[in-house]
Design a protein around this nucleic acid. Structure first.
Lengths: 119, 119
DNA sequence: ATCTATCAGCCGGTTTTCCGGATAGTAACA
DNA sequence: TGTTACTATCCGGAAAACCGGCTGATAGAT
């Protein structure tokens, strides 16, 4: 018997745990996305055009990065009038980033000069 | 007067802080590298071929990833005979990774389905 | 000395990811 | 309803990163 296909699930393909964690790290592995998150942590809440101005990035870029950050649970939103405000609510995001900063102190030079895998 | 060029410095170009932190995140943003680090955290100390066997990855890949991890300060080494043993000594690495795992719990589905920037 | 186990480096190809620029959608407001 | 903010999406092109396969180097064993 051939039935109709099953309802599409968000996580139809179970990714291995390491791939998930790696993906999480990659989300913060882009300087622009990271700057957005850190800016929101500092400022508390901003709407998109304000982020665009402060980071001097294109609106399209910021919009796409925000979509990604929201999707992954780093940023949450609130709409007011014709503006959408973005903020970081999850405290685990802050602790993750400060963890990174702690590791970075003393390793800046090494990481700055690391050529990654291939030269 | 035209002198000889200055001695090459490791960090001749000062990278902005955000780019450094992003690069740090990207280092753990590859599943294979992450698995190497987590394996070493669990097992304490392993030589390269042992890592190759346990991860079922090619020796060349593991070697290059290890080079990167050593370079960035995640992993340190000890040579004994013709073997080199690798381990994670910096406790900040552990706390960084467990920070990530804490954030991941409750966000797996979201991160698994996130399409990043472009579709 | 020769062979073997272990580790490192290079190269070509493919995939992923980022960006600029243009375009389309949406909600408030006159 | 038309205009004006504001936000979202699409489309090449370019750069970064990963991988497989091969080669080279070194230290111990035979």
């Amino acid at each position: 018997m051939v039935g109709r296909p099953a309802i599409v699930e968000l996580t139809s393909v179970a990714l291995p745990d390491a791939e998930l964690v790696a993906r999480l790290f990659r989300t913060l592995g882009d300087a622009t996305r990271l700057r957005v998150v850190e800016l929101l942590i500092e400022q508390g809440e901003l709407h998109q055009m304000e982020i665009v101005r402060r980071l001097d990035a294109s609106q399209a870029r910021v919009s796409e990065h925000l979509t990604c950050l929201i999707w992954c649970g780093f940023v949450s939103t609130r709409t007011e009038g014709r503006r959408t405000f973005y903020r970081v609510t999850d405290k685990r995001v802050r602790s993750l980033i400060s963890s990174a900063h702690r590791f970075l102190s003393g390793n800046q030079a090494a990481i700055a000069s690391c050529r990654k895998v291939d030269g």
